[in-house]
Design a protein around this nucleic acid. Structure first.
Lengths: 193, 193
DNA sequence: GAACTATACGGAGGCGCCCTCCGGTTTGTC
DNA sequence: GACAAACCGGAGGGCGCCTCCGTATAGTTC
């Protein structure tokens, strides 16, 4: 607080100790693994055990269950955002739908994690705001390009589009359903001049 | 099991005692109220307290947290299904979208409850199967009528349509967004011959 | 490399919630 | 009114979340 905000962070807090950083990574890896295997209800003490650290160490890095889930979630969202670069060379429609495909795949694998996080939706606006902004600014150029090329209706925003996709994927129970529902929704997306 | 299935249930198990039934209703009402107010993480002991019964009574009626959530959920889904009758007289497209409007409203109020139940999705196929079937058989006539009237594309099933709607509503953060996203999706739904 | 300090470690333990169990109470029946 | 079946309430065991603090280690300085 106060004046601290103006000081460059690398002068403010010196880097973490080497062992601390190692443990941080170990916990994150163990959590990713454990949540994938045993569902997101896995006890944090189990995760600490897997990571080979004490429960105290886990809590020092992630002050509560939610913080741990957030760290996993946000890390993977950022990776997804960076993937737009891969579609820079494609046609506007293919670039947009290609990236949406990535989004779909990501959500599919993280359905459990995301469901758990939804429980915190109200108390955790910051995380969702961050990841939303990350996704929006990543996806917007793709959408705008498709709209300027005249292949996508202009009265939809990237935010709405992403929510549409997320909603469809999250609720579907089978992969084929995702494809079909998405097909319907994307038909509605096409430019209808 | 065995031969019991063939015997009318009212001969099989005599009705609950009057006090037991009263308590059942009291718990259900208290749960509905408590979940609406304090989120679905409310302690079951708090609900028992609100209902004015012992925790043991709560657990006799609902062997675990999930069962209580299910009872709430299923009861309201059934009510939603019965509401199709109201649209019997409307035009095919209006009847379909009108009922979808009901569905939207229902999901909106129950978002927290549904999110909690999603956590049990894998272990609780039966409930979802039941409520899905209930919704499907309620909504299908509306969809078929619209399709036969030529106003809705024929390559979509009621199950897909409902999942589309549920997905959109569950993920949206503001009521206006629901309307817009739903508008896009319903455009994709219209007959495009 | 020894001494020193900030930083980090681990796990015992407090707390609250989930659920079970059973002695006591109430309801419905004869 | 008496009896059995059904039901009640809440004490208590178990477990997971999180805190706290005595101990250990990394990094620094000489």
């Amino acid at each position: 607080m106060s004046t601290a905000d103006a000081i460059p962070t690398d002068l403010l807090k010196r880097p973490k100790r080497a062992d601390a950083l190692r443990n941080y990574e170990k916990v994150l890896a163990a959590a990713r693994e454990a949540f994938a295997e045993g569902g997101e209800a896995t006890a944090l003490e189990e995760i600490a055990r897997r990571a080979g650290v004490g429960i105290g160490t886990l809590y020092r890095n992630f002050p509560n269950r939610q913080a741990l889930l957030e760290a996993l979630y946000l890390g993977e969202v950022e990776q997804l955002c960076r993937s737009t670069e891969e579609f820079a060379g494609a046609e506007p429609w293919e670039a947009l739908t290609g990236w949406i495909g990535r989004l779909v795949a990501y959500i599919g694998t993280k359905r459990a994690l995301a469901a758990e996080l939804m429980n915190y939706l109200d108390t955790d606006a910051a995380l969702f705001a961050t990841s939303r902004e990350c996704l929006w600014s990543a996806g917007e150029p793709l959408l705008v390009r498709a709209q300027e090329a005249g292949v996508v209706r202009r009265d939809i925003t990237i935010g709405e589009l992403i929510q549409l996709v997320v909603g469809i994927v999250k609720i579907a129970t089978a992969p084929e359903q995702v494809d079909r529902l998405l097909g319907v929704a994307l038909d509605g997306l096409r430019y209808q001049g």
